[in-house]
Design a protein around this nucleic acid. Structure first.
Lengths: 120, 120
DNA sequence: TTGACGCATGCCCATATAGGCATATGATCG
DNA sequence: CGATCATATGCCTATATGGGCATGCGTCAA
């Protein structure tokens, strides 16, 4: 068997660097195919193909505007990835450090000073 | 050109469902190849191949133990994915809701009751 | 209607996959 | 050393990719 189709899910769709870049660009708002192609230095057909994949997995939406087709980000499609990743957060010490920092900030903000027995 | 190698980065490595499952299993601790293969219902060679990919992108580490080779999770390799994804969190309203909930919990835990003016 | 412009598709190619199977490589034990 | 268990690799196949290029299709203006 070959590798799963790029359109099988968000995981496969975002495995392509260029497609990730497209998504990043779309965070700023709708963009036409030619704009994306130009900004990322790729051919128009390539942009269209990548956008097709992103569309099929529900990461972007299209809207026709005259001759143009404006693509819009639909980040909800990334939730599965986010959720899967969530199960590993506990393994990144820095995450905890930041959480601790955050808690500290909250404490200071509230002007507290009790002994902290944060279990983990 | 073909698709980027599965070993090119974590994004490509975790595009494979079975590899994601392997990582999930390893969250509970080290496991030998045959154990992984059995738990996931795949052949030993397949397990070895997937593990090889995960090893090459730094998502797991190996340790020989007698005849066995114990694989251990190295979730740090997922950070790039997590960070890239972070740029999209603002698009998921639920993320914010949960943060709010968390803040509420912290407040109640501390038995406070002041007017909350969390800016954001 | 005819052009022209903006995108989407089709086609061809080189590459690499996941999987099945056989077998090489390693380590342990008698 | 030789047998055996645990893994890693090699080989083969079917499938699908991303990219280049040409072209089909839809929209709008003259």
């Amino acid at each position: 068997m070959a590798r799963a189709a790029t359109t099988s899910d968000a995981f496969n769709a975002i495995a392509e660097p260029q497609r990730r870049e497209i998504l990043v660009l779309l965070r700023s708002g709708e963009l036409a195919v030619s704009e994306l192609a130009h900004d990322l230095g790729m051919s128009q057909p390539q942009a269209s193909k990548h956008l097709r994949v992103l569309r099929e997995v529900g990461l972007v939406q299209v809207r026709g505007s005259g001759k143009q087709r404006l693509y819009d980000l639909d980040a909800g499609g990334l939730r599965p990835v986010h959720e899967w990743l969530g199960g590993f957060e506990q393994f990144w010490s820095e995450s905890f450090d930041r959480l601790d920092d955050y808690v500290q900030v909250l404490k200071q903000t509230r002007g507290e000073r009790q002994s902290d027995d944060n279990d983990r």
